[in-house]
Amino acid sequence: MKPVRTTTLREYAFKREKLNNRARSAGSLAFFFGPYFICFIMFFAFPLVLGLIMSMSSFTSNSVYPAEFVGFSNFKTVFTNPVMIKDFWSSVWYTIRFALIIVPLCIIIPLALAMLINLKPPGYKIFRACIYLPGIFPLTATGLILLRMFSYHNGFINALFDISVDWFGQTGTAWFMVGLFCIWGGIGGNFIIFCAGLENVDKSLYEASGIDGASPWKRFLYVTLPGIKPQLVMCIFTSLCGYMNLYGQNYILLSNTPDQDSVMTAVFRIQNMLLGSSRSYGYVAAMGIILGLIIAAISAVQMIATKERQGGNKRVSAFVDWKKSQ
């Protein structure tokens, strides 16, 4: 006969109630957290895992499922195959270059606008809405309008200024147009964040620095910028990630530019390779992962650079020395 497990009534009651308590709190956790968790799994974890698997397999043109496991050979191909190097890495380089130019613009311009709005001139609420408005318009519709406006022979802009510039045909002006499009639509988000951040800067700090004798520029450097540092860091991070993934603007505006090699961004290149057959899925997944790692590396560098620095004790030791000499 099996030995019977014994326990005291008190111990049993304690165990039961403890379990019930845990279940209750876990239950409410699941209730509130559940939907998000499911979405997280479906749209983030699952595609990430699938992408990893895809990047380590080869594909045939018949099926969208991986054909066989090939380890890291896809990655090796992306790094060594000449046509890959020419296409993918050049697009990565173009993307980084563009991001390096546009991210500062997308920080400085909204910051300047936010500071102007912070002065609260009459009608500032209208201006604030107008600055944010372009960001909510659909990308495709505005892109098409832009294509029409800047059309080489029939465009409004060329007619207005009586110039003859093929805006979308030449690489230089094409990137300029993409930059214009990005800035027009992209500053709204950062602008609102900076507006909120500027409001939270302690007004008495401005007064104190004014009494200390700081000029408006010094006040900006020592009071405003440190005051909005969390917002700045966040905006730089999100803008950088966003622009490294630039795709829509290039696709809509520059699909007909002759020198496609110089106007395709990394994600555009990846998307392009996806079209047609499913043979390229393995390489494309590997490219996607490589791109993700590059962005992660750049972001890590940025985070480290903007981290809070701890003190040290330089001043205290100097003070002790001074005290001794008195």
Binding site: D202, S204, L205, E207, A208, S209, G210, I211, D212, G213, A214, Y222, V223, P226, G227, K229, G311, R315
Partner: peptide
């Protein structure tokens, strides 16, 4: 204000949050 040769102490201290004590005092 800066030409009046005055020093002011505020109710909420108004210290520069990113500077240490030495730099705060030395700011002016």
């Amino acid at each position: 204000s800066k030409d009046r040769d005055i020093a002011m102490v505020f109710q909420n201290y108004a210290l520069y949050p990113q500077l240490n004590v030495y730099d705060n005092i030395a700011f002016g």
